[in-house]
């Protein structure tokens, strides 16, 4: 081969692009929309029922979160959430049930390494970044709101 290293790499990259299929973006978006939407509809139903039972808005929202977290965790433990995730992708990762799934899945996986260094240390390996950057984002938004929120 006479072409230089970087040319060879570029050429190969083109070959790979032509050969390896891309994930089906449209169908995956539709699946994510339907499943993610369904989870949100479920949350809305719970909120409405709670409001009907005279819970105030804040309490209803909090109890709904708890309920969805419980369901996400339960279905993870029942070995079902991973199948849902394989079908729905971001549709089941983004809602709070997905957050619960990421924590419970890690806890189950690393339990064999003990409760302190296994479950305790590794439970947040996937959820950790979400917490860190979620917190930072909320601080930034809070500062903006403080100065410009009126």
């Amino acid at each position: 081969m006479k072409s230089s290293g970087s040319e060879k790499k570029k050429e190969y990259d083109k070959m790979v692009q032509n050969t390896s299929p891309k994930p089906k973006l449209l169908i995956n978006c539709v699946k994510a929309f339907v499943v993610g939407g369904a989870i949100c509809v479920l949350g809305q139903i719970i909120i409405n029922v709670l409001k009907y039972w005279d819970f105030n808005k804040d309490d209803a929202a909090m109890i709904t979160s708890m309920f969805l977290i419980f369901l996400g965790s339960l279905f993870t433990g029942l070995d079902l959430y991973d199948s849902l995730g394989e079908f729905a992708g971001a549709g089941s990762i983004i809602p709070i049930t997905g957050f619960a799934n990421s924590i419970v899945a890690s806890a189950i996986e690393f339990k064999k390494e003990g409760y302190v260094l296994g479950v305790g240390a590794k439970m947040f390996t996937i959820a950790g970044p979400v917490i860190v950057y979620g917190t930072i984002s909320s601080v930034v938004v809070g500062i903006i709101y403080f100065f410009f929120g009126g």
């Binding site: 891309k22 959430y81 991973d82 992708g89 799934n101 899945a105 890690s106 996986e109 690393f110 996937i126």
Partner: peptide, 11 residues
């Protein structure tokens, strides 16, 4: 990822 984590595999 942990086995029960609900992620999607590319083709």
């Amino acid at each position: 990822f942990p086995l029960e984590y609900g992620s999607q595999r590319p083709p």
